[in-house]
Design a protein around this nucleic acid. Structure first.
Lengths: 323, 323
DNA sequence: AAGATTGCTGACATCGTTGTCCATCGGGGA
DNA sequence: TCCCCGATGGACAACGATGTCAGCAATCTT
């Protein structure tokens, strides 16, 4: 009898014990499918992401799993080749998976079609670091523009003027947000952000290496490079080493994210710390709270922080603040 | 009517079309719970692992997901704090998740209680890189001993004799297997593997840093260190840098796995390539084949390969082959 | 042309829970 | 002592698919 297992009232202890004994004797386990069928609950939560850097995915997943620890929800991982190419398929996939809810990582968290279709399909969602339509669903919010402004200002304050930029995947709203943050810092310092010194690296190590190579092979080589995430920054460092440059003296490199690689490489990478883990935890907790009908906040704000390490120094030809 | 959706024979085209139109009109989607209930299939596959290095998990997951791409199975990730402490709970967890099958990563793939209970619970499993009871279930097999022997032999051939060892988590059978491979190489070279130069690093970066620190703070400092995975090797490199040693001249370091970090660090790390991705793909394919009733191999063998890069050179005081 | 055979379709039991409804039992108040 | 009410436990429909079975129509055989 189901009342025993669900700890309902109006059941005597004697019956409780008797049922439990019988269950143990028969090696009984409740059938999850039947429960799900009648309760319309799968207790499955999806995590949708598009192959960004490995460390980002890992932190994201660890955050979600951490938040799910005390709950009876389980995590299904749903990597998507290209969110923009497959927006319709994605929601079909999610519906077919019978999820109770999904955590959306960028760039899915910013995709209007996905958001609209999820709402239409009645699947609850929580969004990690969205930049548009912030009112839709639960979300964890962070100011990419401010973080980017801070790291660019740091390089400018060191005296760099010839600064190359390695942009992330154009499909991520964060790419433009960070670029605009860089731009603000340039304007504040009274100098120009040269468009022909912007290369795209797609947030991957290889992309960063290639973008770095293009920037470093120019006749007018930059003295510093701003990469929009740490993987690409490491790629830039590899490209610099291949060209015999010594780091950080010949080239300053700054990243974004504070992912594990930023602490591993030598010199240690100057970067902007993004609390991906915390954001994943917060998003998951909001999602679960909603699914369980508990009241709670619908948004959480997170701060990023400039971490000045060893990969950024003043350019050779100029002292700090000089130009 | 279900016959239309399952593409069964004996249905006329007219009815097929009529049903499809009605389904579209009503925005009909089959109920996964009801299907699962009557078919006794969840189409969920679990991946059980214990927080080893991040890159290992990522490669593992990517492999499983890759193998699942064409299939209608979905992946549930099940990280376990400590397999040895929670062996009984683990299977309870898996049963509660209504999984069709699980892919077991080390050390769960070598845990007799887990294997026995899975068999008892009727949950199919595929094992990645097991070292014991190889006949149980489907498995992907690799010769850890040979890989370890090769990398140790490489250091010995370079002329190193004072070689420290950073061991992995004692709970992983691979730790002992790799140690015994090292031992074979030492014996073949006619020298002794000093037990007091073995430190444990638990397969983590931090563990590697601490173990490296202990080895490098000795009065009789080793000229080379063998780490049982790349994360620990990087940790050793960080400890060496903190002590002002220059790499690789003052200290040769070799890792194991060929994880992404091994290519990122400077100097690039000598290591043993383990095809984790391929093993995950193979294990998953075998599992799915079994679940689908397709015939197929129950075991796949994989090779590892010594990758000599920049982190290992002859010791200062001796030429190659010298002693 | 009538019976046999095959193709197609609708009806219905089934899977294992949940939750509602109803019958029963026991105790306390009138 | 009788009645009423709350506590308790059993019976049963519902969830939404699947798959079997039986019935009917159409075609083939003789």
């Amino acid at each position: 009898m189901s009342r025993v297992f669900n700890d309902e009232p109006h059941v005597s202890d004697a019956v409780k014990r008797r049922v439990r004994e019988a269950a143990d004797a028969l090696n009984y386990h409740p059938n999850v499918f039947a429960q799900s069928l009648v309760r319309r609950r799968s207790h499955l939560i999806g995590l949708v992401y598009e192959k960004p850097s490995a460390s980002y995915v890992v932190e994201l997943q660890m955050g979600v799993l951490d938040a799910l620890l005390g709950e009876r929800y389980r995590l299904i991982v749903i990597p998507v080749r290209s969110v923009h190419d497959n927006a319709h398929d994605v929601v079909g996939l999610l519906r077919a998976a019978a999820l109770d809810g999904v955590v959306l990582a960028p760039p899915a968290s910013d995709h209007p079609v996905i958001l609209a279709q999820l709402a239409a399909a009645g699947i609850r969602f929580a969004r990690v670091a969205p930049l548009r339509q912030l009112e839709l669903g639960a979300s964890t919010i962070i100011d990419d523009v401010a973080g980017a402004r801070a790291v660019a200002a740091h390089l400018l304050a060191l005296g760099h003027r010839d600064i190359g930029i390695v942009k992330g995947d154009p499909g991520h709203a964060a790419s433009d947000a960070r670029l605009s943050g860089y731009g603000q810092a340039f304007r504040a310092a009274g100098c120009e952000m040269r468009l022909d010194w912007i290369e795209t690296g797609n947030f991957t190590l290889e992309g960063g290496t290639e973008a770095g190579a293009r920037l470093l092979d120019r006749a007018d080589r930059p003295t510093a490079i701003l990469a929009q995430n740490d993987e690409m920054a490491v790629g830039v460092m590899m490209a610099a080493r291949e060209r015999g440059l010594s780091l950080p003296d010949d080239l300053s490199v700054a990243g974004f994210d504070d992912s594990e690689v930023s602490r591993i490489v030598w010199p240690r990478l100057t970067t902007v710390r993004q609390p991906v883990f915390d954001m994943a935890v917060a998003a998951t907790e909001m999602l679960v709270a909603e699914l369980e009908g508990r009241p709670g906040a619908r948004h959480s704000h997170h701060d990023n922080q400039l971490l000045i390490r060893d990969s950024t120094v003043a350019p050779r030809s100029a002292g700090p603040g000089g130009a």
